[in-house]
């Protein structure tokens, strides 16, 4: 487990020092929220009904920027080879990278939340803790798949294009669940009766794909 913390701390700290991805990601998320306001009347009731969807589209797009950097960061000076050659197991490397990306994504999302709340007139405090739960589960799904696919695509041409192309379809069940849950929390303030299967789906998705990633990451890293 020490390897996990080492990698996570290294990634998190170097990102906080350079703020490359996180600045780009926050600005990108804000731009998306702005563009959505052109497509829908921002404070209309109908918009509130799809607010969860809008929020997650912004998170998913902005997240790809952070996830792309997760392994691409190591390309300079052949750091990737050094990291792979270091006495850290593949699963530790994956978990460490995932943890760092997860925290960075959460920071981006928590910055976007109040902005979104102000711009779209949505009350977030009504169901803050359940919302946080959905946020954590959904973001972990995004990270677990995203970091694995980032590792898959790090060495290929068109890396920046390939990650979203593969990530979004694979992520869609988790995105659907996160959107539905967020929307019902924003409108009703509590989980509805129909939300249970979606919550289960989200948890199952997290478990399945984290396990798969842990099992397969070794193959990806030692190409």
């Amino acid at each position: 487990m020490r390897g996990v913390w080492a990698i996570a701390r290294k990634d998190f700290q170097s990102e906080l020092r350079s703020k490359e991805a996180i600045n780009a990601s926050v600005s990108f998320a804000l731009v998306i929220l702005l563009i959505f306001s052109f497509a829908f009347e921002p404070t209309a009731d109908e918009t509130r009904a799809i607010a969860g969807g809008l929020l997650w589209i912004a998170f998913a797009f902005a997240g790809a920027l952070i996830l792309n950097r997760s392994f691409a960061r190591e390309l300079q000076n052949d750091c990737l080879d050094a990291v792979i050659a270091s006495p850290i197991a593949g699963w530790e490397l994956f978990l460490g990278k995932a943890l760092a990306s997860f925290l960075l994504l959460l920071v981006v999302e928590l910055i976007c939340f109040p902005v979104f709340s102000i711009f779209y007139g949505v009350n977030l405090t009504k169901a803050f803790w359940p919302l946080l739960l959905v946020l954590i589960l959904g973001t972990w799904a995004l990270t677990a798949l995203g970091v694995t696919f980032a590792a898959l695509t790090v060495n290929i041409r068109l890396r920046e294009l390939m990650l979203p192309l593969l990530l979004y379809p694979a992520l869609s069940p988790a995105l659907m669940a996160s959107m539905t849950l967020t929307t019902s929390l924003l409108t009703a303030g509590v989980f509805g009766a129909n939300d249970q299967p979606w919550l289960r789906l989200l948890v199952g998705f997290d478990v399945i794909f984290t396990a798969l990633a842990l099992a397969l990451i070794e193959f990806v890293l030692v190409l």
């Binding site: 798949l145 694995t148 898959l152 694979a170 798969l212 397969l216 193959f219 990806v220």
Partner: peptide, 8 residues
């Protein structure tokens, strides 16, 4: 890469 993706 494609084998891992096929499993996912």
């Amino acid at each position: 890469v494609s084998a891992v993706l096929a499993i996912f």
